Simulated scan of single mutants.
Amino acid sequence: MGTPGSARARRLWRLVVAGLMAASMVTTMSARADPACKQLVATGNPEYPPFLWRDPANETRLIGANASLMQLLSKEIGVPIEVRYAGSWARVQEEARLGRVDLVAGAFFTTDRLDYMDYVYPPLRETSSVVWERQGATQKYQQWADLKGRAGVTVINNSFGEEFDRFARANLKIATVPSLEQALKMLQLGRVDYLIYEEDPANAYIAQLGIGGLVAASPPVSNERLYLTLSHKSSCNTPEMRAALAKALYKFGRQNVMKKLVDAGIQLWRTQ
């Protein structure tokens, strides 16, 4: 059974989404998708609060800011969008590669991903990826070169932008693990010297797990744009669909929709 705070946060979440949907319906729909596409299946990183995480009430679904954005997008383009849990972040990318899902609701740009996904512009949001260290670490991070010779960790198939990814492949020793929780505990226990991950999702997990003594170093490793992507193998990947999605995202960007959804997502995650 949920707590009173959780119930309030869910009510707030529903009110925010309902209000944004109502505002969206006031104007004439400028984006129309290919009428041959009857439904889209979206998924994403399930360890990504406040953007995405598994719904405690139904773990086959994802909730969060990006999931709510898919609801608004569905209304705008006139095509139902189901936001489904598809496994780990590595698995999500494989599902997109195989065409088993249509949309990935939140991915950084890499040239490798262009082999199996189209990026929809404009981006959803800009996020910061940072180096997490133990408080009082003798070696302090200030620039990429400071990570050389130290043991790092991140989550499998994560990207932090083309430039840093190239630097890391050539110069750094970074292990990969299936989950952010595992990576945070490895850092806490001193099994690695640093973790690279996005600031907001890592902060959310640190608070949930009650982990102390970890700090985000400055400056960020990268500031990257987060995109909606469409699988090459999706039967709905047509010029009409790509145009409809892009027009809707442009409209939402002008209305500052994503900020409102992220703020509501943060409140909901904290109560859970």
Results as ranks from 00 to 15, higher is better:
Ser159Trp: 00
Gly265Asn: 00
Ala244Ile: 07
Asn223Met: 13
Leu147Thr: 02
Gly5Cys: 11
Leu249Tyr: 05
Lys75Ile: 10
Glu133Ile: 15
Lys173Ala: 13
Leu98Asn: 13
Val131Ser: 12
Gly64Cys: 08
Gly64Trp: 07
Ser231Tyr: 07
Asp165His: 12
Glu133Met: 15
Lys173Met: 12
Tyr85Glu: 07
Ala217Leu: 02
Lys233Asn: 10
Glu240Trp: 11
Met21Pro: 02
Thr110Ala: 10
Gly161Cys: 04
Asp263Arg: 11
Tyr205Asn: 04
Ala145Val: 06
Arg134Asp: 00
Ser231Ile: 08
Arg225Pro: 07
Arg125His: 14
Leu187His: 13
Met1Cys: 07
Ala7Met: 13
Pro122Cys: 03
Gln182Pro: 05
Arg169Lys: 13
Ala9Cys: 02
Thr154Lys: 13
Met258Gln: 14
Arg166Asn: 08
Ala42Gly: 11
Ser24Asn: 12
Pro56Met: 02
Phe109Gln: 04
Val155Asp: 07
Ala137His: 11
Gly136Met: 04
Val153Tyr: 11
Pro122Gln: 03
Leu103Ile: 03
Ile206Ala: 12
Leu124Arg: 04
Gln267Leu: 10
Tyr194Gln: 04
Asp193Leu: 06
Lys185Gln: 15
Ile81Met: 00
Arg10Tyr: 11
Ala244Cys: 07
Arg225Ile: 00
Val262Gln: 09
Ser68Glu: 12
Ile81His: 08
Arg10Val: 02
Ala23Arg: 15
Thr238Ile: 03
Ala90Val: 04
Ala137Arg: 14
Ala202Ser: 15
Phe160Asn: 11
Glu162Ala: 14
Leu20Lys: 09
Val101Lys: 03
Arg54Ile: 02
Arg32Phe: 01
Ser88Cys: 03
Arg14Leu: 09
Gln267His: 13
Thr28Ile: 10
Thr176Trp: 03
Tyr121Val: 03
Arg32Tyr: 01
Trp144Thr: 04
Ala216Phe: 02
Arg191Ser: 12
Arg242Phe: 05
Asn158Thr: 11
Asp200Cys: 01
Asp102Trp: 05
Leu249Val: 03
Gln71Cys: 00
Arg150Pro: 03
Val41Met: 09
Ala168Ile: 06
Ala42Arg: 02
Ala9Trp: 02
Leu184Glu: 13
Leu245Glu: 01
Lys173Ile: 03
Glu224Trp: 08
Val101His: 05
Ala31Ser: 12
Val101Gln: 03
Arg8His: 08
Leu261Gln: 12
Met258Lys: 08
Ala67Leu: 00
Pro239Cys: 06
Ala246Arg: 05
Val104Glu: 03
Pro239Gly: 08
